[in-house]
Design a protein around this nucleic acid. Sequence first.
RNA 1: GCCCCGAUAGUGUAGCGGCCUAUCAUACGGGCCUGUCGAGCCCGUGACACGGGUCCAAAUCCCGUUCGGGGCGCCA
Length: 428
Amino acid sequence: MEKHTVSQLKALTSDTEVTLQGWIQDIRVMKNIIFLVFRDHTGIAQLTVKRDSWKGINLESVSRESAVSATGTFLAKGVSKIGPEILLKVLTVLNPSRSPLPLAVSDPVNSDIETRLNHRFLDLRKREVNVVFQAQSKLLWGIRKFLSDNGFVEVHTPKVVAAATEGGADLFRVQYFEKETYLNQSPQLYKEILISAGLNRVFEVGPAFRAEKHNTVRHLNEFTSVDIEMAFSDHNDAMRMLEGSVRSGISEVSSSMGKELAETGHNILIPEIPFPRITYEESVKYIEGHGEKINFGDDFSPEQLKILGNQFHDFYFITKWPAVLRPFYTMPDPANSEFTNSFDLQYQEKEITSGAQRVHDPQMLVERFHSKGLREEDFSFYLESFMYGMPPHAGWGLGLERLCMILLDLPNIREATLFPRDRNRISP
RNA sequence: GCCCCGAUAGUGUAGCGGCCUAUCAUACGGGCCUGUCGAGCCCGUGACACGGGUCCAAAUCCCGUUCGGGGCGCCA
């Protein structure tokens, strides 16, 4: 007996015998006829049972969300409006579901995100929840494809590290045998070392940890960072790779999932490149022109970014950030060292990516350590790679969940994270 | 770190001093019934986070605890 998915049914001729495996979403028992709403990972079908000719198990005992195997004949001219119809011959409960369910999978009541995350596996059985992560997978696939096509090598660097990337305040401490270590907040230092290693162009997709006690809909304490670093390049090269990656990711989502997303209420627009660029100074002027007060060297508040974001359709770069706002490894602007060869990718008021040309001169790097109050001896393993012909280089780090949240217009980054880690949540 | 807010059946809610032996929906259990619908109708089970206080009277007001939501800061 050949197994089928719901999505394959419509290509079949009527009366073909099929076996489907999935879940019972709903059961409607009547005097002479029984309807079961069946769901697999591809869609919904109706299993129809005529009582007088049924010889199988007691269907009234089958609880909703039980995993089942269903065999019957496909009715091409079925009456069902919810999906393809199968005249059921055999139903096997592979594993029953308890009831009542801790949250509604198909009922017309919404659960709080709290309840949903507590029972995430059930929440994810809902198509509109599930589709987010299928889209996220395609998004990343499109980004990977673009980077790979542009000569980037995918690498994996340690997450348990001895020293902080940009200080020490916001790292999680980990006991590593008899030593105290940290969970890495960014692969930054390792990416740069790999540039000195001659890998030319590298990228990494991996977790980043931030021990910040933030409590917002756009921050997590563990998120997926897409990071690149490229040799013999500057911030402009990095920006071109970034807009190319974003566009490639989105167009992959659109071409492979556009229909499913449209059905669940998401309209995907592939952005035009190049993205507009505006400098920090221009941004300050623009925002001040709208009645907000900013001091030089201040970061923009969400309110101010909203003002700025209003003049762009979707993605835009803010470039040339003041050195005081940027980490030690950021290359100063050769024309004016108060500024840097840096950029943020924004989507309206939301920051998605931070990047820059990096300092490659070890002398300058040491000076920058000192100006940021860092001790160079904590970074000797890093600094050493700059002493033996480190190429000029640039790169960026992108928050995958944030990009996904923006793309699908989700109200909370937790909606774009399977098992989010926030200030309070460590389970499931 | 600072600041707001919340907790009522499995789920989501109404109630905000006495009319609460707490509303409604949905789920769940039972019954009737229908080829399509979020099917319908009838009946039933099921809840005030915890501890203290005020009051003749507390789901409702006050304090504390626990758990949680959100904003700012910081960032992806």
